[in-house]
């Protein structure tokens, strides 16, 4: 049994220590907004926050999480999250949408650290999130939109 604190609730999950956090969240806790795309930290679809910092849950064994606070796409809150998700919808960023949970998680994390990211800042923060539909033009524009919205 491993104890995981996800979105403010402590869950006891019956999994091996080497189980990636991703599968514990999806299969055992039943939160499926966090997606599987590669399993090797190449695509970013599985991004969650561990104590507020973005982490690829597919390469993070549950044994490494301890009593850290895990936050998934289902529970992100705050003005950055609201601004990013509003911008995502207004720009119609998603196509297939499968990678977008991870994209949103990374974008929100960026804006929490950097209120006014440049294109280069966006490249460095977001390039770990693959989008096979290549919605990148809109991801960039929506992050700038969200940053502007946060200024007001």
């Amino acid at each position: 049994m491993v104890s995981l604190k996800v979105n403010g609730t402590t869950h006891s999950v019956d999994v091996d220590d080497d189980t990636p956090l991703l599968w514990a969240i999806r299969d055992n806790i039943g939160l499926t907004g966090t997606k599987f795309g590669c399993g090797v930290a190449q695509c970013g679809a599985c991004t969650v926050y561990v104590d507020g910092q973005p982490v690829r849950s597919c390469v993070t064994p549950v044994s490494a999480v301890g009593d850290s606070e895990i936050t998934t796409i289902e529970a992100i809150t705050g003005k950055e999250a609201e601004a990013v998700q509003a911008a995502w919808t207004a720009r119609d960023v998603p196509q297939c949408g499968y990678c977008q949970s991870g994209q949103v998680m990374s974008a929100v994390a960026l804006l929490k650290e950097n209120k006014k990211p440049t294109d280069r800042d966006i490249d460095l923060a977001m390039n770990g999130n693959l989008c096979r539909c290549a919605t990148y033009v809109r991801i960039r524009a929506a992050i700038h939109d969200a940053a502007r919205a946060l200024e007001i």
């Binding site: 930290a41 991004t47 973005p54 982490v55 490494a64 974008a107 650290e113 460095l124």
Partner: peptide, 16 residues
Amino acid sequence: GAPAMACTTCHGKQNY
């Protein structure tokens, strides 16, 4: 690393 892409985004305390 960079904001939202710190080393710890992918690299944990031990090899995985």
